[in-house]
Simulated assay, not measured.
Amino acid sequence: MRQIEVQVAHLFVSPLHRYEGRPSDGPVPLPAGGAEGGVAEIALRAHLGVVGDRYFGREAHRSASVTVMAMESLEAVERELQVGHALDPFATRRTVFLRGADVDALARTRFSLDTGAGEVVFQGNRPANPCAWMNVALAEGAHRALRGRGGVRCEPLADGNLTLGPAVLRVYDEP
């Protein structure tokens, strides 16, 4: 087992699928008065996902109900594309943003995150390959720039909560 001190930089939960259809059509509008953004805490349920999220309890998404991404990946894309501003992590629609770990290496591994309320164990499954929506949501060229560093799709294996701030990442098995 490997243990790494990390930071949970952002958490995102959305009950709405916004990237449907063709990217040229633009995202699905938010309901009147609706807003999306980060949250300070998420509740996870084993084999179901994040409470309140669009993928929660959906059979087709059980093995991919949580997506973890490295902030360093998004920042590398900012530099490569020379956008001149910080890219919005929430536009990627990823769930958990970590700082301080090679998140993409967690594909096909069992790992946990502990933000102080106990470990939440995950099965890292397939890479979260970026889609063409990233060119619309982030910046032109982001789709290609995120290849190989779009994060990892995961299934929570235990109930628990994650909060923003310092965390311990434990990697139990390597691919």
Rank of each mutant, 00 (worst) to 15 (best):
M1R: 06
R2M: 02
Q3G: 02
V8D: 06
A9I: 01
H10Q: 10
F12N: 13
F12Y: 15
V13P: 11
V13H: 02
S14G: 11
P15R: 13
R18F: 08
P23N: 09
D25Y: 00
G26K: 04
G26Y: 03
P27E: 13
V28N: 10
A32K: 15
G34M: 11
A35M: 07
G37F: 09
G38R: 13
V39G: 02
V39W: 03
E41S: 14
E41L: 14
I42D: 07
L44Q: 08
V50D: 05
D53R: 11
G57L: 12
R58K: 15
R62D: 01
M69A: 03
L74K: 07
E75W: 03
E78F: 07
Q82W: 01
V83M: 03
L87E: 06
L87K: 03
L87I: 03
P89T: 00
F90D: 07
R94I: 02
T95Y: 06
V96Q: 08
V96A: 09
F97N: 00
G100L: 12
G100V: 10
G100D: 13
A101P: 05
A101Q: 08
V103Y: 06
A105T: 13
T109N: 03
D114V: 10
G118R: 08
G118A: 12
V120I: 09
V120P: 07
F122R: 04
Q123M: 03
R126T: 00
N135T: 05
V136E: 14
V136K: 08
A137R: 04
A137N: 05
L138C: 08
L138E: 08
L138W: 08
E140L: 00
A142T: 12
H143R: 09
R144Y: 02
L146P: 00
G148D: 09
R153T: 08
R153P: 04
E155I: 04
E155A: 12
P156F: 02
A158D: 12
A158W: 05
A158F: 00
G160K: 10
L162V: 10
G165D: 13
G165V: 11
G165C: 11
P166C: 01
P166W: 03
L169G: 12
V171Y: 04
Y172T: 01
E174N: 02
